[in-house]
Design a protein around this nucleic acid. Structure first.
Ligand SMILES: [Mn+2]
Ligand SMILES: [Mn+2]
Ligand SMILES: [Zn+2]
Ligand SMILES: [Zn+2]
Lengths: 138, 138
DNA sequence: ATAAGAATAATACACATTATCATTCATTAA
DNA sequence: TTAATGAATGATAATGTGTATTATTCTTAT
């Protein structure tokens, strides 16, 4: 028996999922495309977009709408938070305990039906900070 | 005496700032353009984009990179949080006390130089919820 | 094997944002 | 006051991310 939201695991979808699960970098759709193309050279970019969107709708992966101009994807679906480097755009996980109770607080103080939340920190990553220090001493 | 980051308050910039301060709706650049055009019909869309970006860089306003395809702007620069309706895209403030101490926690658990954070809740706004209830009873 | 439906790949399209550049405006120094 | 300089603007072109379209290919059920 299959629930209505189960999707067929086509070869394309399988590879997209596997490649996404391999990395911790929160790649963009284009980056996933590049990763997947090494295994499926004939896959279309539209297929990658379409299926990332579909899997996100099904809760199989996370679509991160963080700062910057591109959406990013995450195979880890547990509630967790992110930090984005304002220099290079890199996104990393932040090992902070999740605070699901925030949703209730938000519901209490608004007339929205609250569905969830996300915390995005911003900062300078180690690499960019080091690069800056280096060029300052030149 | 002017600090280096002070910018000249051209008529265009003044009107953009005033119109943005008038609303609580977190308008997109295009929406700001429409508001401003009523007072300055000859202003260019590029000028609006350029100056919203500039003012955000100077800390005079906030650029909200929330979910959805367009960036939004906010004349209120105090640390506060937002909720976005996943149906209609509307963005409202959430009256939750700010938690600046989160930045320190994030700094402790990462090698980033943490600059700040933002919390974005998602949910269904009153209007969209009512519309849904209405069409369900048809 | 055949038919029906789902998914794919190629391509065209939409649209938000940025870049370019000639013109206009503001500021400064003769 | 005027001339020179640099900054800002407005018009327009260009870029890039993401979506829509559609003919073809693949699955599944009969
Ligand atoms: Mn993550
Ligand atoms: Mn706000
Ligand atoms: Zn970085
Ligand atoms: Zn709504």
């Amino acid at each position: 028996m299959q629930s209505q939201s189960d999707i067929r695991l086509t070869p394309q979808r399988q590879v997209i999922l596997e490649e996404l699960a391999k990395v911790k970098t929160h790649p963009t759709a284009n980056e996933v495309y590049d990763m997947v193309r090494k295994r499926l050279p004939r896959i279309g970019l539209g297929t990658v977009y379409r299926n990332l969107e579909l899997m996100a709708d099904n809760g199989m992966i996370l679509k991160l709408e963080v700062g910057g101009s591109q959406k990013r994807f995450d195979a880890t679906t547990d509630l967790h938070y992110h930090i984005r480097c304002t220099r290079c755009g890199k996104v990393d996980d932040i090992e902070l305990g999740a605070m699901p109770q925030l949703d209730q607080l938000a519901a209490d103080t608004s007339d929205y039906q609250v569905l969830g939340h996300h915390i995005e920190f911003s900062g300078i990553c180690k690499t960019c900070a080091d690069n800056q220090a280096e060029s300052a001493t030149n």
